[in-house]
Structures are given as C-alpha cells and as structure tokens.
Simulated assay, not measured.
Amino acid sequence: MNQELPPDFLAVLHEPVLHEDDLDAQERFFGRDAVRAFYREAVREDARDAVLRAAAPLLSELHPLRGGLLALFGGALVESGADPRLLFPATLQRMSQLLASLAPYCAEEPMEEEEEEKEDEAVPADLAAWRAAESALRALPPAERLQIEARRCAVDLLVLPLMAMLMRDVRNHRDLLADGALVARIEEMAVNGTLPFDQLHFLRSAAQLAYEDELVVLLPTSQAGMIVRAHGLNNNFHAFSLLQDLFRLHVHTLGIRQALTVRHNGEDEYGEPRDSDSAEYLWLQATAYAGGKLVAPMAWSWGEGTLRENARRQGQLVLVALETDDKPARSWNGFGHVLHSEQKPHVALVRFLAPDEVAAYLA
C-alpha cells in the first residue's frame, strides 16, 4: 500500500459539519464501509505505520471534528501495533490549537457568596471569568455555536488516541510535559462549567504520572539506599506502596530493622489488587536533611502530590524513608488505580547505593 489515503476514506473525512446531528460522529464514522475496509486493509497489509505517516499532516487541515476522527482511527492502529510516536506530535499540536481556541468559552463556576455583591466592590477574578465565558457563548450566532460544540467534541475525541500513544511510549509523555503551557491549559480547562469536556480529565491525570529512570530512595537509619526505575506512578502515595513492596524484597541488603507488614505482590488477603495501604516509614523529601542530620522532620513528601514535585539533590529526584515510631499514622486508598491498560505502573531496582553515596545525598 502506498502512503496515500484512499479517496473514499478521504471523502468521509471531508464531509462538512453543518448540523447538530453531525456532532454525533464517532459511531457513524467507524460504521462506514470505506473506513472499515481501510482499517482492515491497513492491518492485513501491515501498513499501519505508513497510514499514520500519511495521516499526520492532515490533522491540521481537516475540520476539527473530522481531524479528531482521523486521530481516533490512528489510535486504533496504534492499539493494534502501529508506532505510537508517528502521529503523536501532530495530535498533540491539534489538541493545543483546539484548547487555545476554546479557552475564552471555558470557566469554572465560582463558589456562591453568602453576601450579595456590592456595587463599589471589585468583581472577583473567578466570577469575572465565569461571566465573560458565559457572555461569549451567548453572543455566538447558532452556526458559530455549532462549530464551538464541534471543537469541544473534537477535544474529547483526541484524548483517546493521545492516551493510547502516551501510555505506549514514555518519550511521548516527556514531550507532553515539555509543553508547559499546554499542560497548564489542560489543568485549567479539564473541569469547567461553561463548556464541559467528558474526556479531558484523563489527559490531565496522564500528565500527572511520573516516569523516572533514576529515582533515589534513601533509608537514613541504616545508611542504605537504592536507585530505582519508577514508571507510570500516579502520585506519591502510589510510589510509597510500590517502594514498600520493593523494600520487602531487599530487607537484609537495606538493613531494615523494623518489623514489616506482610504483603503479597500488591494483593490483599483475598488475592485482589489492593486499593489501600499505610505508611510504614516517615516519608520525607531531601530537604528534611542537612549535614547528615534530620533538620526538618515536617518536610514530608505529600502523598497526593506528583512524584516529580519532590525536591532534588545532585540533580536527582530523592525520597527518604525514615524508620521511626515517632510518625503520624498515614493511610490511603484509591491511589493505585490505573488510567489505561498500558500504564503498567512499577518500580524496579537499578542498583544499591554505597554508604558514601547515601551520606552525600543527605549532606
């Protein structure tokens, strides 16, 4: 198969979006004979990658809703084995463009004030943003409002292929994080009351995942430590659970003295994936130590935060697990869920640290 997309497939993608019925496009698109036949042909002839290369430049040229459907078609090919890198840059760029165009219409409804607004008081920023977004939407003629709704639908369509590509190649995740403005916009717009999205919150959660090839984990009580590979972690609570499991595998090498709670491969007593856990250590950031001494015992690693928000030493992300009875009871549940079947969260030992390395990180 050459890299040109079939004319009947392209004809479907170039259909106009003029009516409200056109917005309910996903099921109709994948039900078209031209689409189904092209997908089967691409898979049968192992032309998935060639199709994605041909599709990439089209994403910015098609109507946003049709471009979203093409990206979704590409995501299906990725799920069946296509290279997850090929279509990702164009899809991410299209997402960025669409969110920028929709930003003026998106705002979260502010909390209700008990007292009525007074004429001489300044309008709070969140209330002003809400009113501006609502006013902008109301001012649109019906045809333009339909196109805004089409763009909203396109955003949700783009989330699905982006997730398929993000979860299959860590380089895609790093490219997403490198676009700080886009990440901030996703965070701001994922939950809004004026033009709500159904799927964008998944992309916000994906942006919060941590992929660290060399996470430094220190155990000051025994002057031991490890460098671990930590991939697909939701937050610090998720990291604590997986690291505590890893500690149990290397308890003697790490010189851990305290009694350990028995866990079995991240499962509960009934063999089900556990959704709750508790801190067996006082989990701290590197700033808790200076000169080898504990100087800031309240410099906790906050469980709900993302792993990359922790402090770094020597350019490396550091977590400290302190064995002590003088610690608050910390437990959690619901933080070990996976966003996608290809997330595959895990921590793995890279190497143990020598005592002088541990001392240098605690200095």
Rank of each mutant, 00 (worst) to 15 (best):
E187V: 05
N172S: 04
H173C: 12
D175R: 12
E144I: 08
R138T: 04
R174S: 03
T194V: 08
L166C: 04
I148N: 06
R168L: 15
I148K: 13
A150E: 06
L137R: 06
L158K: 13
A133G: 08
P196K: 01
I148C: 10
E149Q: 10
D169S: 08
L157I: 10
H173L: 14
R145Q: 15
L162K: 11
N192H: 07
R138A: 12
I186C: 00
G180E: 12
H173Q: 13
L195M: 00
R171L: 13
A150T: 06
A184W: 03
E149K: 12
R145S: 13
G193N: 06
L166T: 00
R171Y: 08
P141T: 09
N172R: 00
D179G: 04
R185E: 09
R168D: 15
L157Y: 14
D175W: 01
D156S: 13
R171G: 15
R174L: 06
L166W: 03
T194D: 07
A178P: 01
M163R: 08
A190G: 00
L137W: 02
A150M: 11
L177R: 06
A190D: 10
R152L: 11
P196F: 02
A190M: 08
A190Y: 05
V183F: 01
V183M: 01
R171M: 11
S135F: 08
C153D: 14
A154G: 05
L140H: 04
E187C: 02
M163Q: 13
R145T: 06
P161I: 13
L158D: 11
L162Y: 11
D169A: 12
R174F: 05
M165F: 05
V170P: 11
A190I: 09
G180Y: 05
A181G: 09
G180T: 10
R152W: 11
D169I: 07
L140G: 08
D156G: 15
M165N: 07
E187P: 03
G193I: 10
L176M: 02
A178S: 06
L162S: 15
A190Q: 10
R168I: 12
A178Q: 00
A133M: 04
L140I: 08
C153Q: 15
R138K: 10
D175C: 02
P141W: 07
R168T: 12
A150C: 03
E134G: 14
T194Q: 04
L166G: 02
R174Y: 07
E144T: 12
A164M: 11
E188A: 12
E134C: 14
N172H: 01
N172Q: 01
A143E: 15
L158S: 14
L137H: 04
L195I: 00
A139E: 12
L140T: 07
R171V: 09
L166P: 04
L176F: 04
D169E: 14
R185N: 04
N192D: 03
A136I: 05
V155S: 08
V183E: 00
S135V: 07
G180R: 12
D179L: 02
D156F: 14
R168E: 14
A164V: 11
L158N: 12
D175L: 05
P142D: 06
L182Q: 07
L177D: 00
L146S: 05
D156E: 13
P161E: 15
M167A: 13
A184L: 03
A181Y: 13
A178E: 00
E149V: 08
M167S: 09
I148G: 03
A184I: 02
E187S: 10
L195C: 01
I148T: 10
M189I: 06
D156T: 14
Q147R: 10
A133E: 01
